[in-house]
Computed example of a mutant assay.
Amino acid sequence: MTIRNIISEIVAEWPKYKESRKVDKNARAYDLVVNAFPGSLQSIAQNTDYLKFHGSTGQGNITAAPWVATFDTRITSSATSGFYVVYLFSIDLKCIFLEFGFGTTQFTNHFKKKSECYKKIRTAAGELQERHEKKLLPLFKQALHDNISREPIDLAATSRDGLHEAYEQSAIYSIKYPLSELPSEEHLESDFNSFLTLYREIALDPLALKMEELFEWAAEPANTTGESAITNFKSRPAKKRRKESSSKSSQTRRSKESLKVGNAGEIAVLNYEKEKLKKAGRSDLAGKVIHESAEGNTPGWDITSFNEEGEKIFIEVKSSTGKVITSIDITSNEWKAASDHKDKYFLYLVTKALTTTTPPVEILKNPWSYVDRGELEIKPIVHELSLQLKG
């Protein structure tokens, strides 16, 4: 079946299917969205390397309107995060959009007020447009006959359709097709492949923002003026091994902690350490706490502080905008300091670094000892190979 025919049949089948409320894998509409449409896109894609084609009518309950996405697995394999190309049907079934957009779960989880959340999503979309338009958009627009839009799309979503409201705001580029006047099959195929070309260019661009970085860029750092909740480190449950090779996870590079997130975490820890010493009656030491990284020092930790007995302690801060940290990157310099100072070396794990005035802090004392007794594992992700002769 052609894309054009599949879209038309989905429109015809959807109202009846939606009435059942629960996802029905035996229904014709389900088969069209989940199997036929993705399969057709795969057959017309000029290059399917790294691509995953996926359609959804909802999970459990039927969604307000169906969507069919194409994921570059180097970026994402889920509609909740990362960038992807997606066909979105409007809820009133009057139009369908071909969109290059991004997952909004990170935004909706952190910004509870819809108005603020959608504003941040648009800020993120605008930033990505600005970063790529000089290089990519002229050719992209020429291929699409200037039909491309840089604005939010209209899926006829109401306040009850929060997911689709977020989809509307996360459009970076889009094309609108009225369902009563679908263009030719050749036109649809050409547009789809043009979007895939843009997608690949961004995926391969070494300077392209990752989703985590885009969220961090859009978020305003919260003033860490409150008192953070402090807990002692507890080892995470062992990760279940998948049947397939585990090499894939070890090859996946985590996005680097941004300066904004790192600084927010360090300020929270700096405030905590000074208050801790004041409460312990050591105001004389509170003024001697050193923010090493802010002063351009690289001793292998970010903050030099003191314990209640007046002994120096060395704190490396690892920060995240997420709710939990399951692994960290640690440099050879930091790990050498951890092995040298042992009980005086601490990892402070700061979560929700940009989104609360009191980011939680988890304290891991002597990380070297956890590795030494085999409770935690440290392994190299990247090796540096010098191409110069050894002196």
Rank of each mutant, 00 (worst) to 15 (best):
48 T>W: 00
50 Y>V: 08
28 R>I: 06
26 N>V: 01
27 A>R: 00
57 T>Q: 01
56 S>F: 04
54 H>T: 14
60 G>N: 12
55 G>D: 09
49 D>W: 08
44 I>E: 07
28 R>F: 08
37 F>S: 13
29 A>Y: 01
58 G>K: 01
32 L>M: 06
27 A>V: 00
33 V>N: 09
39 G>D: 08
59 Q>L: 06
30 Y>S: 01
37 F>W: 15
46 Q>P: 05
52 K>E: 03
41 L>G: 04
58 G>P: 02
59 Q>M: 06
46 Q>A: 09
45 A>I: 03
59 Q>S: 13
43 S>R: 02
42 Q>F: 07
31 D>Q: 15
28 R>V: 06
26 N>G: 10
57 T>S: 05
47 N>A: 09
61 N>H: 13
31 D>V: 10
46 Q>C: 15
25 K>T: 13
51 L>K: 12
50 Y>I: 09
26 N>T: 10
42 Q>T: 06
45 A>N: 04
53 F>R: 01
37 F>R: 13
59 Q>W: 06
42 Q>P: 07
60 G>R: 08
58 G>H: 01
45 A>Y: 01
34 V>D: 14
61 N>L: 11
34 V>A: 12
52 K>Y: 03
43 S>D: 10
24 D>R: 11
37 F>A: 13
52 K>M: 09
36 A>V: 08
59 Q>D: 09
40 S>T: 15
54 H>M: 09
41 L>K: 01
58 G>N: 01
54 H>N: 12
57 T>K: 07
26 N>K: 15
25 K>F: 09
30 Y>M: 03
48 T>L: 00
43 S>V: 05
60 G>V: 05
34 V>P: 15
31 D>P: 11
36 A>W: 03
46 Q>Y: 08
42 Q>I: 06
40 S>Y: 11
48 T>F: 00
52 K>D: 05
46 Q>F: 11
26 N>P: 08
41 L>F: 07
24 D>S: 04
42 Q>C: 11
46 Q>L: 13
54 H>F: 14
53 F>Q: 00
33 V>C: 08
49 D>G: 12
49 D>L: 09
51 L>T: 11
32 L>E: 02
37 F>H: 12
54 H>I: 09
53 F>S: 00
61 N>P: 14
37 F>M: 15
31 D>A: 14
26 N>C: 07
45 A>Q: 05
37 F>Q: 11
53 F>M: 01
32 L>H: 08
33 V>F: 03
27 A>D: 02
50 Y>H: 15
57 T>Y: 00
34 V>K: 10
28 R>T: 10
47 N>C: 08
41 L>R: 02
46 Q>G: 10
41 L>T: 06
47 N>F: 10
56 S>P: 08
45 A>K: 05
36 A>R: 13
38 P>M: 06
34 V>H: 13
26 N>Y: 10
33 V>E: 04
29 A>W: 04
51 L>P: 15
61 N>W: 13
33 V>G: 10
59 Q>E: 11
24 D>I: 02
30 Y>D: 00
36 A>K: 15
25 K>V: 10
41 L>Q: 07
37 F>C: 12
25 K>M: 07
